[in-house]
Design a protein around this nucleic acid. Structure first.
Lengths: 231, 231
DNA sequence: CGAACAATTGATCCTCATCAAACCTTGTGG
DNA sequence: CCACAAGGTTTGATGAGGATCAATTGTTCG
């Protein structure tokens, strides 16, 4: 309740909500703070709550039985996550959510969302829209992984990051914050390969790489690479 | 209208529909017959209709700019497809649907479904359930492709086919119909690799492979392989 | 200053894609 | 009913693309 309910309108699924509905959601939420590296929930846990991130950064990932992990998506402020569980009752989370830095989120009972949707078509519609974007993005990434070479995939991942969380610098570049390990997980490759590719790009002046940071100098060139139009 | 509206209840999204609603959908549908290799719709087309397959088999696929293609999923009887376009207005299909054999489908206007959902929460709920299964399946396949070797992926694809369209034979095996090219597209590999792997399995008595057909003799062993528990 | 963590770089190896050629199966038409 | 065409499958040979391993070099922070 420390949250101004109007803030919730920044969540895509709540954009068409009435003020009263926003207040309802706000009243039924509890705040949860999580340290870097800790988990909001694990794959397989019963999906009792869904979350809205209000500060920090988190990632959704899947692990295979051997413990190898893959990044499904990065969650930034005012994004909803863990909401798939709200659709079925007794569902479990299909992925694990881990905080990438100190983060706080609103937790709302999945049951509550499900009940609200029964009488508010706009809610279902907006959640479905969100779900279609997930499906489309996963389909694209799947095709990418199946048919495209690493360099293109890394370029594509980097561009996605630019549009998600890039900040322009006075020098005329775009600044990004992440480890190469993270970029590797997003692109379906290893940190070694990412390092080599970034070094290559740095030689050609496309980017500048530092510790936990990349400065994109020529996004246009990256687009070319991601579309296979270089050399 | 030649379709008995009660048949529509076999479609997962219509399972909770009232009889009257089924009739409405039936009245607003038109039948479309498509030859093998022809297309229901292309990626990027405006999503005016969604479809319910009533006979035959079709596949949903994505192509990259170079024309290389990836199978997203196989559609069998009484499955809905092309319905993502019903969520947004003016949406386009995010994939291409091609008939794998002579097929007929009911085409229903996306607008109509969207209107129906405004006043029938059960419809939205059931469509959302379907969408969550897509998301989960794509997430799993993505992780698989990113972290698992071909043999396991092929085993997994084969098992998916078994549960989707396998028919038991008197001899105690499970019979499947598809080309190795198709299995390759589903597993994110090439027909050469599929052929080699199937030959290997045949040597060990797990399967018998023939032209456009595979007989699975020891599904249990396939499960082991798909989970990395062999050797 | 030192410990912990991130990035780099070289060397090696392995999995699979690719290419080529032959082989098999099925259906068709003379 | 046989011969041939077309499409599916098999198998070998080759090579490229990255993963993996190992060792070193930054960088940051307590």
């Amino acid at each position: 309740m420390s949250i101004d309910s109007q803030q919730l309108r920044r969540v895509s699924v709540f954009q068409n909500a009435t003020d009263d509905d926003l207040k309802l959601f706000s009243k039924n939420s509890i705040e949860r703070s999580i340290e870097e590296g800790e988990f909001f929930f694990f794959q397989g846990d019963p999906a009792v709550y869904f979350y809205v991130l209000i500060s920090g950064r988190a990632k959704l990932m899947q692990m295979n039985p051997a413990g190898q992990q893959v990044n499904l998506r990065t969650i930034t402020e005012w994004q909803m996550f863990g909401a798939l569980g709200a659709v079925r009752d007794n569902a479990t989370y299909p992925a694990t959510a881990q905080a990438m830095e100190h983060s706080t989120a609103l937790a709302i009972k999945s049951d509550f969302l499900r009940e609200m949707m029964q009488t508010r078509p706009y809610l279902s519609m907006d959640l479905m829209k969100l779900m279609t974007t997930y499906i489309q993005e996963m389909q694209e990434r799947y095709r990418e992984l199946a048919t495209e070479k690493v360099e293109r995939r890394i370029a594509h991942s980097l561009l996605r990051l630019v549009s998600q969380m890039g900040t322009k610098t006075p020098g005329g570049g775009i600044e990004l914050t992440f480890t190469q390990q993270e970029l590797a997980e997003m692109s379906g490759t290893t940190l070694y390969t990412v390092s080599r590719v970034l070094s290559e790009w740095e030689k050609n002046g496309l980017v500048e790489a530092g510790r936990e940071r990349v400065l994109v100098r020529k996004p246009h060139e990256l687009v070319k690479i991601s579309e296979g139009l270089d050399r």
